[in-house]
Computed example of a mutant assay.
Amino acid sequence: MSVMTNFKGIIPAIAVPFNADHSIDEAELSRYAAWLGKRRGIVGIMTNGHTGEVFSLTAKERAEVTRIVAKALSGICPTISSVVCEGIKDGIEHALMAKEAGATALDIMPPHHWLRFGFKREHCLDYFSAIGEATKLPLIVHVYPAWTRASFSSELLAELARLDHVQAFKIGTREMNKYARDIKAIRAAAPHKALLTCHDEYLLASMVQGVDGALVGFASLIPDLIHDLFAAVTAGDLKLAMKLQSMIDPLKDAVYGGGEPTGEAHGRMKAAMQVAGVIRDATVRPPTHAPSAEEMAAIRAAVAAAGLTVQAAA
Score class of each variant (00 low, 15 high):
187 R>F: 07
290 A>W: 02
86 E>G: 13
306 A>F: 00
312 A>E: 09
90 D>S: 14
11 I>N: 04
188 A>I: 00
308 L>A: 00
49 G>Q: 08
80 I>Q: 06
165 H>Q: 15
78 P>I: 11
171 I>Y: 07
113 H>G: 05
160 L>T: 11
207 M>E: 08
6 N>G: 11
162 R>I: 07
78 P>D: 09
129 S>K: 13
63 A>F: 06
273 M>D: 01
271 A>F: 07
38 K>I: 00
202 Y>L: 12
297 A>W: 02
187 R>G: 04
80 I>N: 06
28 E>F: 00
230 F>K: 06
81 S>H: 08
193 K>H: 04
269 M>I: 01
219 A>K: 02
158 A>V: 03
1 M>D: 10
59 A>D: 15
213 G>S: 04
212 D>A: 04
51 T>A: 15
261 P>N: 06
155 E>R: 12
94 H>F: 15
160 L>I: 07
189 A>S: 08
235 A>M: 09
267 G>T: 00
165 H>P: 14
232 A>P: 10
303 V>G: 04
193 K>F: 03
69 V>S: 11
142 H>D: 15
183 I>Y: 03
170 K>G: 10
107 D>W: 12
179 Y>L: 14
52 G>N: 08
266 H>P: 02
76 I>C: 05
15 A>L: 09
197 T>Q: 09
183 I>F: 03
238 L>F: 13
300 R>N: 14
25 D>P: 08
263 G>I: 01
99 K>P: 11
3 V>P: 05
287 P>I: 00
264 E>S: 09
156 L>K: 00
229 L>G: 05
12 P>Y: 02
58 T>C: 01
177 N>K: 13
283 T>H: 01
33 A>Y: 04
40 R>C: 10
195 L>I: 11
88 I>K: 08
243 K>I: 12
80 I>S: 01
104 T>M: 00
33 A>H: 02
93 E>S: 14
120 K>D: 03
226 I>A: 14
162 R>D: 13
127 Y>V: 10
250 P>K: 06
38 K>C: 05
160 L>W: 04
186 I>Q: 04
279 I>G: 08
82 S>Q: 13
52 G>I: 05
258 G>H: 02
210 G>C: 08
248 I>M: 11
153 S>T: 13
27 A>K: 15
252 K>N: 14
20 A>S: 15
258 G>S: 01
63 A>C: 08
258 G>Y: 04
130 A>S: 10
180 A>E: 11
279 I>C: 03
192 H>I: 06
283 T>P: 09
191 P>K: 05
148 T>V: 09
199 H>I: 14
261 P>V: 03
37 G>F: 08
290 A>R: 05
104 T>H: 02
